[in-house]
Every structure is written in C-alpha cells, then in structure tokens.
Amino acid sequence: MRIRCPHCGPRDNGEFSYLGDAAPIRPDGMEAPPAAMHDYVYLRDNPAGPHRELWYHGAGCRSWLVVDRDTRTHEITGVSSARDVALSRRTGEVA
C-alpha cells in the first residue's frame, strides 16, 4: 500500500503510522456530559468500506494527514494535510 503524501508524493506505507478514525471531534471537557466524553474516547465505527482516518508521516515530512481509504480494498481516494482539514473545519469550509 502506498499513500500519496500531499507534501512528499507517493510513499511506502512503512513511512507512516496509523492513528485511527479522523471523524471524532473532542467535546469541550468542561461542558460536555460524561456520555459525550465516553463516546469521544471509546466509541468508534468499524466500517467495511470508505473510512476517513488519520495517518502520521513520521519517516518523511512529519505531518499528520487525513486519508480516505476503503477498508475492504485499501484503495485511497483522497489525502489531505490534517492541518488544512482542521483549519477549514474552523472556518466552516469543506476540506
């Protein structure tokens, strides 16, 4: 499997580390009820199909990436910088 890093180009997956689902957004810990924090910390979907996930390019540019991967085929349909995703989330644009 290769991941096309937006900074470095296509690289072997051995250069990357997998973190997990990119969807959860940390609730405000001072405001959120325990159930919301429990969901954020522990509960993950485990889809057979398209999955949006976080990878770290540790042996390359040391950037966090958001990767759209099909868990059945490992087909990767999109890679973007996690920083850009977070910034666009903050400004309300779609990454």
Partner: peptide
Amino acid sequence: LAIDLHPRAFQPGQVAVTA
C-alpha cells in the same frame, strides 16, 4: 531508499525526506 529515483521522478534540485 523506498522512493522512485528514476530521472523522470527525481532529478537534480529535488529532495526527499525518507528512510
């Protein structure tokens, strides 16, 4: 190096951070 060093992919003036 697990990168493509062929001249069509990697030329003078290019750099890779890799292993």
